[in-house]
């Protein structure tokens, strides 16, 4: 097994654990934790693909940095959404949030 596939298998494991977390959790905060795991798996895979092959110079490292920036932006917005949901429904359980009226 090459170095690249080893790291990519780790990344896939992390992604799948995150996916399981998103599906399995009931609260929005728990789902957010799963999403962070998935994003980290993606970043790990990108980084391995760049560091162990002959791609253009700094591309992989900067892409990973980009993924981190996007994750930070996404987390900020999700925090706001969680706060609004908590204010409106009094809880953050995803299964009971089913009202469509504004």
């Amino acid at each position: 097994m090459t170095m690249l596939s080893t790291y990519q298998l780790v990344a896939i494991a992390m992604f799948s654990i995150g996916l399981f977390g998103v599906m399995n959790r009931r609260s929005l905060v728990g789902m957010l934790i799963g999403v962070e795991l998935m994003l980290n798996g993606a970043g790990l895979s990108i980084m391995a693909a760049g560091q162990f092959t002959q791609t253009a110079g700094a591309l992989a490292q900067l892409s990973t940095l980009l993924v981190m920036g996007l994750a930070a932006a996404e987390t900020t917005l999700v925090l706001a959404i969680v706060l609004i949901v908590d204010k409106r429904f009094g809880h953050v359980e995803s299964e009971n949030i089913s009202m469509l009226r504004g």
Partner: peptide
């Protein structure tokens, strides 16, 4: 970014909602 910022944000979410 992750441990310093994202995790603090998630912890804030836990603190403010649950």
């Amino acid at each position: 970014i992750y441990i310093g910022a994202v995790c603090v944000i998630i912890f804030m979410a836990v603190m403010l909602t649950m």
